Computed example of a mutant assay.
Amino acid sequence: MRLSEPAPAKLNLALHVRGTLPDGRHALETIFAFCTDGDRLDGEDSDKLSLDIVGPFADSLAADDQNLVLRAAHALADAANIEPKAALTLTKNLPIASGMGGGSADAAAALRLLTRLWNLNPSFAVDVAPKIGSDVPACLLSLSARGTESGDKLELVQDLAISGQAVLLVNPRVALSTRDVFATWDGIDRGPLGDWRRGRNDLALPARSLVPAIGDVLDWLKNRTGANLVRMSGSGATCFALFGNEAARDAAAAACPVEWWHLATDLR
């Protein structure tokens, strides 16, 4: 039996860093949204666990013990007390370390796919997800949600201004370490997150100090006709613009500088 699972690109429509939790993690308030496009994971029965990586960004990722797909597979098998056996193929369409939750989305896709392949209770995947990464629970749902605590306490969001929104993602082709960005954050709590439209990304300034090209991308997006909201996603370096219609988005995509990666897509 061969199965396939999408790993939709994640966006943080707003991301407020409020401080530090008792366990040392950063306290966050964020609105997660997911795109109709992203990576893809395929899998089938096998006598062992293996991972093949293909696609435009395959060379940027190793199929080793640090790979989140394999970590998710092992964690799910351990929770269910079974031996992990599956032949997995990850199509890596998204740049790595880009603020779109690519690794977390891939891990979540592995949890969903292997839950079906191994005929497991979905509760195993729900329990395992936060142990792999703070974005994995949101990516497991892949639905618009408000995240608090470290981003892993979720409340679904029903907002007609999100679903179906035309969006352009742009990355200057620079990988950016989440750890480095948080280490550069100034530690100032700039207030709670209310309406995401009037929110902010508190990691944008530290990310720009590490990768100045992020500022160039944001300035370019703000000058596109029809761009309603422009921000950086997550810890960067991917930025996005929401558009009122697909025509305006596609026109912006066609004008994107060739040295930057971009993806014209829609929000789920």
Rank of each mutant, 00 (worst) to 15 (best):
L3C: 01
L3F: 10
S4I: 10
P6R: 14
A9K: 09
L11T: 06
N12W: 14
L13P: 05
A14M: 06
A14G: 14
G19Y: 10
T20V: 15
T20S: 15
L21F: 13
P22Y: 05
R25T: 12
H26S: 07
H26T: 07
A27I: 01
E29A: 12
E29N: 01
R40Y: 02
R40G: 07
R40W: 14
R40C: 14
L41I: 08
L41H: 03
E44G: 15
D45T: 12
L49T: 10
S50N: 06
G55H: 01
A58H: 12
A62S: 15
A63P: 09
N67Y: 11
L68Q: 09
L68I: 05
A72P: 05
A72M: 05
A73V: 06
H74M: 03
L76G: 08
A77H: 11
A77I: 11
D78A: 15
A79L: 08
P84F: 06
K85D: 02
L88K: 09
L90V: 08
L90H: 11
L90T: 10
L90E: 12
I96T: 15
I96P: 03
A97M: 09
G99N: 11
G99Q: 07
G101E: 01
G103W: 07
A105K: 02
A105W: 01
D106F: 00
A107K: 04
A107E: 06
A109L: 06
L111P: 05
R112N: 09
T115Q: 04
R116D: 13
L117V: 13
N121E: 15
S123W: 00
F124P: 00
A125R: 01
I132F: 04
G133F: 06
S134M: 08
P137L: 10
C139M: 10
C139P: 09
C139Y: 09
L141H: 14
L143M: 14
E149F: 14
E149P: 02
K153I: 12
L156T: 13
V157C: 07
L160E: 15
I162D: 00
S163R: 13
S163P: 00
V167R: 11
L169C: 06
L169V: 05
R173G: 00
A175S: 14
S177M: 12
R179F: 02
F182N: 07
A183E: 13
D186R: 01
G187W: 02
G187P: 05
G187Q: 08
P192L: 05
D195C: 01
R197F: 07
R197P: 05
R198M: 00
D202N: 06
L205M: 13
P206L: 09
P206W: 08
P206E: 00
R208L: 04
V211E: 10
P212W: 04
I214V: 10
L221P: 12
K222L: 10
N223P: 00
R224N: 11
R224P: 02
A227C: 12
A227G: 10
N228S: 14
R231Y: 10
S233K: 03
S235T: 08
G236R: 11
L242H: 11
L242Y: 08
G244W: 09
N245I: 01
E246N: 05
R249W: 13
A254P: 01
C256A: 15
V258Y: 00
W261K: 03
W261S: 01
A264R: 07
T265Q: 10
